[in-house]
Design a protein around this nucleic acid. Sequence first.
DNA 1: TATGAATGAGAGTTCATTCAT
DNA 2: TATGAATGAACTCTCATTCAT
Lengths: 205, 205, 205, 205
Amino acid sequence: MARMDSEQRKKQILECAKKLFARKGYYQTQISDIQHEAGVARGTIYQYFKNKDDIFKTLLENLHKEMKDVISSKPANLEEDFSSGEKVFRYRIKKAFALFANDPDYCNLLLRVGLGLGDSFDSILGRFDRQMVELIKSYLVSGIKLGRVKPDIDPVLMSNVIGGGFMRMAYFYGVTGKGSKTEEFEQLTENFVNAFAYGIFLEKP
Amino acid sequence: MARMDSEQRKKQILECAKKLFARKGYYQTQISDIQHEAGVARGTIYQYFKNKDDIFKTLLENLHKEMKDVISSKPANLEEDFSSGEKVFRYRIKKAFALFANDPDYCNLLLRVGLGLGDSFDSILGRFDRQMVELIKSYLVSGIKLGRVKPDIDPVLMSNVIGGGFMRMAYFYGVTGKGSKTEEFEQLTENFVNAFAYGIFLEKP
Amino acid sequence: MARMDSEQRKKQILECAKKLFARKGYYQTQISDIQHEAGVARGTIYQYFKNKDDIFKTLLENLHKEMKDVISSKPANLEEDFSSGEKVFRYRIKKAFALFANDPDYCNLLLRVGLGLGDSFDSILGRFDRQMVELIKSYLVSGIKLGRVKPDIDPVLMSNVIGGGFMRMAYFYGVTGKGSKTEEFEQLTENFVNAFAYGIFLEKP
Amino acid sequence: MARMDSEQRKKQILECAKKLFARKGYYQTQISDIQHEAGVARGTIYQYFKNKDDIFKTLLENLHKEMKDVISSKPANLEEDFSSGEKVFRYRIKKAFALFANDPDYCNLLLRVGLGLGDSFDSILGRFDRQMVELIKSYLVSGIKLGRVKPDIDPVLMSNVIGGGFMRMAYFYGVTGKGSKTEEFEQLTENFVNAFAYGIFLEKP
DNA sequence: TATGAATGAGAGTTCATTCAT
DNA sequence: TATGAATGAACTCTCATTCAT
């Protein structure tokens, strides 16, 4: 194998590993699979990663970071008016959809493979979806305070329902590969938010 | 080991396997774990099951069957009036909640462990949730035809959102162990259905 | 492989391992070597031992125990007269010689292989020879108190010299295989003790 | 890395290797350890040595040569009188002590690490101690002929005992680091020779 | 000459499955 | 039918060595 920039080689291995882990799961992906997929010798992998675990965890951490960025991003030129909170919410939902839809392997890894590994990787995932649900919950709570969200809903229950609904939908669209164009995310987001809109908001937005 | 009815012995092994699979995942559960948990010799397990796969698949099939019964059940003495469709829906949601909540291992197995196994068990799970979503979709479609459900919603998207929301919520309540009394299921179901009610139904039920 | 009593099988594996470790050293002895030597499948070894280390340590511990018994043994019917201390000393020297001579593999393991392993096995060996030297030192010290041993000798130095001399001799006779008959141990011991006798004892014994 | 005289570079690598081999043993010392210790790239080592074996063997040979020089050295201005043989013996013993004491790594390498490697390095060590014992034996034999050493001692046994005693003592003082001043070697040698003097010589020297 | 990324044979270990008792 | 010792394929990981730069 030709020499290669160290950072690039690491990325290459990670990319191949992501693909395989996403499709075959953690345990059914052998180091030799990654080796062949990456066109690299066995030992090379171990020069960049401590062990199989390390590859998987690095992968999860990277993905996690990416998602965090998306989730905490805000649209530029946002006037801080009454509805800005909701706009941010929509913005993030859309971004997250796009992230999943553009990277089905990512989608699988986070939404399925990572879940099935018992508690081995729990701490790293931080149980990713727990975070997402937490975020939604806090959004609802502050919505209630602001008088925008119905005060009689149960934020815990509702955040689980919304979060689960989102992820199932993301998974569906991410994996089946339907809808990868920007307009569609727009539409998807709209529909998704609308599904809950009447049930949550005091006035239809 | 005291002699035991053959059917009973099989059940006992399955019960132990369920517990372990649910808590540690498929690959991290060894045959020897099951052996010890069940207080049975290693070879005995192979008298009742072809192999490890067979245990897991049997488990999934059993659970699946149970769920199917719930999902296709109807409350007795149901007058076939206009709102009966919705009543059945609520009834089933409540039953399904109860099923998960009463058996957290079941919950874990179906909602998490089964997901991480790559495609190995896909065909058996039949992708359990796919079925559930399919069911919801058909419910929505017929709702539209009956003029009860808004005609402008996307049934595919909506069924994914509702299904995902349900499972996330079921997982949350099933695993965290909150809410195991009947009244609570009633309440849970009510809240859950309400979350979508305004977004879906033409008139609030 | 025919079924076998569990304790016997363990012994058999240990015996084969001892032979190989003694002749080829720790690192050059592969599990597969032991496997073939014992005529056992690879996995069988791991049913009796946690890992390669465990085999080696068990071996050392067993040998150590054996040696300890020898070193702390006393001839029967020993009158507790003035010279009994010396008699016990001779008795033990002779016994230790015999032990080494009758089991050259043992000899090699303790006197050579164990030494080359860095500190990995230090704690178990307890640095076997350190113990032996300590024993000799305490013997000398009490000899001085009893007025039997020259008060101007340095017990630390002398115990090292005697201990080292003994082990080198044991190694020589044990490995070269010369002198395995009882009379010869008698003679060997006599010569060995005499080598130091004039230098140590106040009166020739 | 600054350019360096080729011979110097080789020495530097050897020195680092000696330190590591002595402390961790042959197998537990990795090329990468030597690399880091020497502050040299991995490939550089292979510019100076064929392989790991080669490093170790070079080391042993160097040490061996050094020891040979010591062992065959004579004090200057030695009159060839009756007692000169004994003087040479003492002289060499003292020198050898000093050599070990001044270089504990050397000591460890020769007295412990080299021994544990099975037969891999046997031929090179030439079983260093075998040579030493041989030397002592020949000294004893000629002593007997000259009427200085008791004719009834067994030279084979005695040379082993003396050689073993010497090495154990050298190891003890070399590794524990006690006694590095010249006077102490004088004393050490005196004590060591005296230990055997009465048992070996016809008249006390 | 110096480098260090790449290599891959080979080591230890695991664990589902078999089968003699 | 029940047992658990025995099996060995398959896996992860190590590390001395090579070689393009």
